[in-house]
């Protein structure tokens, strides 16, 4: 299974589209968002921190969902069938793909955080930096599962579009691009229940100097369960036909 993870990570990193859009987009957006509004004052400093977490979350979210798009492409090529006639068990194939997907979220997180530290001069303790990376990394699990569910269930083309759509909607409604405080009240309430907002909240809670609340973790765990069930259901259906 380690070999499978290594193979898939290598394939993802060789994907120019992944590197340009998956890593480049959050980087460019982060620099734009933090420099357009002018870059002095206390508000600007807070914004640099919260936008850093937002954009790292956004990049990680995209990479996680992108795993599912890759699954749909593999299915189209007949690679999932080919894997099923190797001694690798189906469970290992699915788990391996999920884990490789979770590795490919790291570059976006790391690059945005590095920019925050080096370009935007964000100051955090070593423990906070480490906590950020670990929590943002673990927090992508629900999105990897959602993307994989779409990948197993849909055609390659549809999976690409649906995962792209999910990414946009989740990023915007979750307040990864613009703070939810700027939303109308009712939308702000909805936003607090979305997986993407709670995901980013993991990071914001760390930069605010405390850990994530139990509520945040519960909401994320619920989403993890929902998307996990969806991925299992989609995989079972695909195994019957693909």
């Amino acid at each position: 299974m380690i070999d499978y993870i290594r193979l898939e990570v290598r394939r993802t990193l060789r994907d120019k589209g992944f590197v340009i859009f998956g890593i480049g987009m959050p980087v460019v957006m982060y620099l734009l968002l933090t420099h357009i509004a002018g870059d002095s004052g206390k508000d600007a400093d807070a914004w640099k921190v919260s936008a850093m977490v937002g954009m790292a979350s956004y990049g990680a979210l995209g990479a996680a969902l992108g795993t599912g798009t890759g699954v749909a492409e593999d299915k189209k090529l007949g690679w999932l069938r080919q894997l099923r006639i190797t001694p690798l068990s189906p469970a290992r194939v699915v788990v391996g793909r999920g884990l490789s997907g979770s590795v490919t979220v790291l570059p976006a997180i790391a690059v945005v955080l590095l920019l925050g530290a080096l370009v935007n001069d964000v100051q955090l303790s070593a423990g906070q930096w480490a906590g950020l990376v670990v929590l943002l990394w673990l927090g992508t699990a629900p999105f990897t599962l959602l993307g994989m569910g779409n990948g197993y269930r849909l055609s390659a083309q549809a999976a690409g579009m649906v995962n792209g759509g999910c990414m946009m909607v989740l990023a915007i409604i979750g307040g990864l691009w613009f703070p939810v405080a700027a939303f109308p009240g009712w939308l702000e309430k909805i936003s607090r229940w979305t997986p993407s907002n709670r995901f980013a909240e993991l990071g914001w809670s760390i930069t605010a100097g405390h850990g994530p609340s139990a509520g945040t973790i519960l909401v994320l765990a619920a989403w993890l369960a929902v998307f996990g069930a969806y991925a299992v259901y989609a995989y079972r259906r695909a195994a019957r036909t693909a």
Partner: peptide, 24 residues
């Protein structure tokens, strides 16, 4: 038999996955 590694196959509609070398 598949799990025991006794079977190898070339499927009709299969195509190898992109972005890996032949040896990999």
């Amino acid at each position: 038999a598949v799990r025991e590694g006794r079977i190898g196959a070339m499927l009709q509609d299969g195509r190898p996955i992109p972005r890996v070398t032949v040896r990999e």
